[in-house]
Design a protein around this nucleic acid. Structure first.
Lengths: 337, 337
DNA sequence: TAGCAAATTGACAGCGCTGTCATTCCTGCC
DNA sequence: GGCAGGAATGACAGCGCTGTCAATTTGCTA
């Protein structure tokens, strides 16, 4: 029934060990032999048994993706990253498991340990905000588990992917400035996310460069959710002199701002320009469509996984790569009234 | 370093096989022995090696969750189901893998076969619309892979979870009728989802029971997305005599309807009542909050997985369970104007 | 109290692969 | 032409567990 490595070996007239070598792309196999073995594998539709490989080779061909579904309300973002990670794992014939792990939980490390002991992943992909949770990083190093991060805050010797979010945020605020806006508000994201800090920093950079002193009333705290965007906007739009533009730290909050603008009888973009960050599918579906920064989440998940897999293959090859951003100028921003 | 079953056996002064029996909850072990072995496992923090178990026992302790990320735009819904499935798998010490599989792709079955051959899942959890994709179900049976479905359309000998969506839809339309509405519109979901049919059927049941003949102009096609809700609402609100209430087949579309109402200068709920289906987090964040049907997605994922795992443990024990729904009457519905 | 069936326990092989190390096969060079 | 040295290949054990079946113990009955 099942085709085993031994069967392939017999068909190709070589020893099982040689088939194993071909399977694992090892050196010291003549090209002719390699071809012959590959042909036999193909012809017999051979599929190595992952458990056998794992048991004998002492590795699992498993990558675990960790996320915190408590402090990360945007399931769309996570879903896209997950898709990307999965794609990369698939291409390299690794399997992937996902794992919610809540930083707020007291037994975080115990759960993490259990994950490692139970499943022996060869490596781990970290998503915000876990990318910078010190106890986790410490434990990963102690247990000698390679990991790659998506958008880590601290960029040391970490593997993974980043985007220059600060530059991106600055660019989008520059866009608002270029449209003549001066009273530009910012809605901050969840505090412990690097994203929140960078986007705020980019906002400040742009404002400072334009010579506009910061008005504390225009910088309000949000939480990356639609509801927090609505609340923040209500606060901003109730101001004696309200802003003419709002840069929200993500699209969900920007949508909330647009919603709230409706409540106040303000037209977007005529009365209020609004922009977000992430370029979620939602942003294109709104009317007017949302001006935002394209963050290629799926691609970032894929690249992070690829760095990890590269590192697993030949130690030391993993890097921290940076992906480019691009502004998506759409209907929600216009010249200042 | 690693604690093996053999080590536990030595510590408990029994044979490895007996430890294995305890590990797998097999019969024919005296309670005293069982306790002794359990104590030893506990004391040594023994973790069975999944690959070894899998290889020797010819099972993988793996559940694959299949989804179609093409025809299923609501990542929130999938994320919740995934969380639920994961929770159940965890509790039973199974691992879970997720797998996007697009019905539209020509090589669907080939990909599915590859999944099974490569990973040997002990069972599969199906999410809509895969729950009713005939070629997939056929292949699952041919390959003898047990599966459980979340909200399957056809309820035969299928294992899994359902909700009486038709009753639920009827209940929510009854709610609108009780508020005095007569011109009630419905926005349908994606065609090949059971959910779309049931919700439409429930709408019709309620209208018929109230003696209101169906007005075809009031029943428009949507696609479960926010944008499709906006489009559908524009169509409805442009009608010579527009509806006083809209029942959208899910919350995302209902949100689109509320959005479009704003465009037309209509106040919700004073001028237009809107209700959705699913009780996504979004529905509570809107203002006014959305009247909707609570569909416990996370719980449903968990229960589907539990039926599957039960079936795996003792063949024949899996069932098709039904979860109750509940209306969430909130601010988006009010008496007819 | 012997005698027998059922319950409990254990010995042993083997799941399908890879690591280690031995063996064979080539090269190129004196 | 013979030989060193490296490249290619293979033999074999064993990864950590479970299935099979045999051995032993237990609990009953007569």
């Amino acid at each position: 029934m099942r085709v085993r490595l031994e069967d392939v070996a017999r068909a190709a007239n070589v020893s099982p060990k040689t088939v194993s070598r071909v399977l694992n792309d090892e050196a010291n196999v003549t090209e002719a032999t390699r071809q012959r073995v590959r042909a036999a594998m193909e012809a017999m539709d051979y599929r190595p048994h992952p458990s056998a490989r794992s048991l004998a080779g002492n590795r699992s061909f498993l990558v675990a993706m960790l996320y915190d579904n408590n402090d990360n309300p945007s399931s769309t973002y996570l879903a896209e990253i997950q898709d990307g990670v999965l794609e990369a794992c698939d291409a390299h014939r690794y399997s992937m498991m996902v794992r919610p792990l809540r930083m707020r939980d007291g037994d975080f490390i115990r759960r993490f340990d259990a994950l490692i002991s139970d499943h022996h992943p060869d490596g781990v992909v970290l998503t915000p905000p876990l990318t910078d949770y010190a106890p986790l990083l410490k434990r990963l190093r102690e247990r000698n588990v390679p990991y790659a991060s998506v958008s880590p805050l601290r960029k040391g010797k970490t593997l993974g992917v980043t985007m220059d979010e600060q530059q991106a945020a600055r660019a989008i605020v520059d866009h608002l400035l270029a449209l003549g806006h001066r009273r530009i508000a910012h809605v901050i994201g969840i505090a412990n996310h690097g994203a929140s800090r960078w986007r705020l920093a980019g906002y400040r950079d742009a404002m400072a460069a334009a010579g506009i002193p910061e008005d504390p009333a225009l910088v309000v705290q949000g939480a990356f959710t639609f509801a927090s965007g609505v609340a923040a906007a209500r606060q901003l739009l109730s101001l004696p002199t309200r802003p003419t533009a709002v840069f929200a730290a993500n699209d969900d909050m920007a949508t909330g701002v647009m919603w709230a603008a409706g409540e106040y009888g303000l037209k977007v973009p005529q009365d209020l320009s609004v922009c977000g960050f992430d370029d979620t599918p939602l942003s294109r579906q709104l009317w007017p469509a949302l001006t935002t920064v394209q963050q290629p989440s799926r691609e970032m998940g894929k690249m992070a996984a690829e760095q990890l897999l590269g590192e697993l293959r030949n130690h030391g090859s993993g890097r921290l790569v940076q992906v480019p951003f691009s502004l998506q100028i759409r209907g929600s921003t216009a010249a200042a009234p």
